[in-house]
Amino acid sequence: MTISLTKKLIGATVAAGVIVALAGCGSAPAPASSSAAKPADANFKPCLVSDSGGFNDKSFNESAKNGIEKAGKDLGVKPITVESKADGDYKPNIDSLIAGKCTLIIGVGFKLDQAIADAAIANPKLNFGIIDSMADPKNTGKPAAPNIKPLLFDTAQAAYLGGYAAAAWSAQSGANKVGTFGGMKIPPVTIFMDGYVDGVKKYNEDKGANVAVVGWDKDKQDGSFTGAFQANDVAKQTANSVLDQGVDPILPVGGPIYLSASAAIKDGGKKTVMLGVDSDLAVADPSVADQILVSIMKRIDDAVYSTVTETAKGSFDPTAYVGTLENNGVGLSSFHDFESKLPKGLTDELKALQDKIIKGDIKVTSPSSPK
C-alpha cells in the first residue's frame, strides 16, 4: 500500500501532484494494458449494456465502456455496446445481444439486476457479468445463476477518505457544513453517502470540530434524492435545497446529476466545490474541473477489462469481485489544482487513514457494503 504522487492529466501527460493511491493485496483487476492474449475461442464476443444513464455519463456507464473497448482492442475483437434510454430497454437490449451471438454480456448497474438474472437462467451456456449487483432478485445471498459474475465495490472505504477531506475543506472555508444528495435511493448510491458521513465524523473526532452533514442521515438511512440519474430541473432543485443550507463542499452521487449541482452552484453565485464519484471527474469532464475538489473513484474500467480478458482466455470465474482500498478497486483521485489550497498535512492524514483501513484498524461499514 502506497501513496503515490501524480497530477492532473494534461493531454496524455501526467505531471507530479498529490493523490491518495490505492494499493494492497487481494485479487485486483488487471489494469488495462496491451498484454492480453488472443481469445481462446475464435467466436468470443464481449458485449455491454448500459443502464438508463447512458454511456456519456462521465461516470460508471462510461467507465465500463472504456474498459470493454480497451479489452477489445487488446484482444483484437470488436465488442458490442448497447445503450439503454429507459428502464424498459434492459430486457430487449440484452435479448438483442443474445441474438447477436454475444458470449459474454455485462450489465452496467443495479437496475439491470432482474434482466441479467433472467437472461442468465435462460441461457446457461453464455457468460454474464453485472456491475454493482449480485443479480439476486430473490435475495438468496448468491447470484440467480452460476454463469453470472458480480463486479462489486466497497465504495464506503474510499468515501470515508472523501468525507474526511470534505470536512477538512469545510472547516478551513468556515462553512462547517458539507452536503450530499443522490440519484436513486439504492445501495450503489447510499454506500457513498454512508462512507462520506463516517469520514466527516472521524474528522470531527480527530480535530475536535463540529462539521455537520446535510442531505443524508446514516442512522435513519434517509436523505435527499432526485429519484433518477438525469441532469434535469428536479436534480437542480434538489441540489439547491442542499446548497441553500450553506454547505461547502457538496457530493452529488448519481452520474450526470453532478451537472445539475454544477449549474446550481454557478447560477447561485456560490463558491462551493464538489466531490465527483465513480471516475476522476476533473479529467472525465474538464468543463467542471475548477469545481472538483477530489473524486471518489470505483475502478470499473479495470474490473470490466479483467473480466473480459480472463473470459477470453477460457477462464470465466463467477466468483464475485469486490473492489476495496486494499486491492486498488476504489480510492481517491488527485486533488489536481486544489492541491496547493488544501489544509496543511491533509494528504498525510489521508494516507494514515487509508493504511489503517487496509490493516483493519479502522472498520468502515455500510448496510450497502458487499457481503
Rank of each mutant, 00 (worst) to 15 (best):
D113Q: 13
N139F: 07
G107R: 11
P150K: 12
A119G: 03
I131W: 12
D136S: 06
F110D: 00
P146E: 08
L112P: 02
A144F: 04
I105G: 07
P150H: 13
D113L: 04
G88Y: 06
I130K: 14
D113W: 00
D136G: 07
S84D: 08
L151K: 08
F110K: 00
I94F: 15
N123C: 12
L152W: 03
D118I: 08
K101R: 11
P92H: 07
D87Q: 05
T103H: 06
G141R: 10
L126F: 09
C102L: 07
A120M: 04
P150C: 12
A117T: 06
L126I: 15
T140P: 01
L104Y: 12
D87G: 14
D95H: 02
N93H: 07
D95K: 07
L151M: 13
P137L: 14
P146Y: 08
D87N: 06
E83Y: 08
T103S: 15
A120I: 03
I94C: 12
D132E: 08
N139I: 03
S96E: 04
N147G: 15
V82S: 15
Y90N: 02
K111Q: 06
K138M: 08
N139V: 04
C102Q: 03
K142Y: 02
V108D: 03
G129I: 09
A115V: 04
K149A: 15
L126Y: 09
A115Y: 02
S84I: 07
A145G: 07
F110A: 00
G100S: 13
T103W: 06
C102A: 13
V82L: 15
A145H: 11
